[in-house]
């Protein structure tokens, strides 16, 4: 059996979540990878990769040409895999539609080549499912598989002629948030703020703490909806799923939907005024109190 992994490239490097997808896919046998746009060389250096299929002419990750290209090659593979990122979730179900197979999203465990574990109901239950499709199309949750390293392999690069892009879907522009902090999904430490941060100005008080810890900054849906933080910082069922070594939740009650995005973190710290806040039920360490008093003390103690 051979798996095909759709990789995502960022700043010339293979994203960590994609490297986790390679690690997961290697459980099925040989691994080929496909790269849309630039980045084939970085992909070829990943350990355990046999061939890199390079579609350099696809400069944007529009789902229509990407899924069509994958579908043209899928019959040679037993599994087509991608990270459960915004890109993977956009393209792979469309591929599944073209192949008439049922996709298997957000896999957290591989039991065997046909059997997978995935969370349902905001992570409140884990379903083990067995697929009867001949080609399995799955996205994997990056935090559940240790990524392969960036270097060590020397795969051959094969150039693909990408299908001509149709006018039905056009790329217009992209606005990316600039940040020097680690990527939220792959950060070792995440500092997250909720509604209790009061406003956007006070939310910025998390930055010195994050700087000290080399942490990424996350937010609850309430904090994002109130305009304290941009959308892409949202951690939860409908935002990003993280499982860092240390997750520090400040002024964040811990709704079911938020817990879905962080309850697999190794150590969880909660700082909240309300001793009854649900976040304390998953926290390893909790402090009940005013976060605006505790935050500076915490920085000082570090």
């Amino acid at each position: 059996m051979t798996a095909l992994v759709l990789l995502e490239i960022e700043h010339g490097e293979v994203r960590q979540a994609s490297r986790s997808a390679v690690a997961a896919a290697s459980r099925f046998g040989d691994v080929d990878v496909i790269v849309l746009g630039e980045g084939a060389e970085a992909a070829a250096r990943l350990p355990g990769v046999r061939n890199v299929l390079s579609a350099a002419s696809l400069t944007h990750d529009l789902a229509e040409p990407a899924a069509a290209l994958l579908a043209a090659h899928a019959s040679e593979y037993s599994h087509v895999v991608a990270a459960a990122s915004a890109g993977g979730k956009n393209i792979l179900p469309r591929l599944a539609g073209l192949l008439d197979v049922q996709p298997i999203p957000e896999v957290v465990e591989i039991k065997d080549e046909n059997t997978f574990v995935r969370p349902i109901y905001a992570g409140n239950a884990l379903a083990t499912v067995r697929s009867s499709d001949t080609i399995k199309v799955l996205t994997i949750r990056g935090s559940s598989f240790d990524p392969v390293s960036k270097e060590g392999g020397s795969a051959t690069i094969q150039t693909l002629n990408a299908p001509a892009t149709e006018d039905s879907s056009r790329f217009v522009r992209v606005e990316l948030s600039k940040s020097d902090r680690p990527e939220l999904e792959s950060a070792r430490v995440v500092v997250s703020g909720g509604k209790g941060m009061k406003d956007a100005e006070h939310f910025k008080l998390l930055e010195p703490l994050a700087d000290k810890l080399g942490a990424a900054i996350g937010a609850s849906r309430a904090a994002v909806d109130s305009g304290f933080a941009p959308n892409e910082m949202q951690v939860g069922q409908t935002g990003k799923i993280v499982a860092p070594e240390l997750y520090i939740a400040l002024g964040l009650s811990g709704a079911i939907q938020h817990l879905a995005g962080m309850k697999d973190s190794r150590v969880i710290v909660a700082i909240n005024m309300d001793p009854e806040a649900p976040i304390f039920r998953v926290a390893d360490y909790g402090i009940v109190g005013d976060l605006f008093t505790i935050l500076p003390e915490l920085e000082k103690a570090l």
Partner: peptide, 27 residues
């Protein structure tokens, strides 16, 4: 259905946490 549900289980419970009194203690 193309997927057969083999089983549905509760996720592992986290062990009970402790409440601390200060930031210094937390660190």
């Amino acid at each position: 259905p193309r997927l057969t549900i083999v089983s549905v289980a509760e996720p592992a419970e986290r062990k009970e946490g402790v409440k601390l009194n200060s930031a210094a203690e937390l660190v």
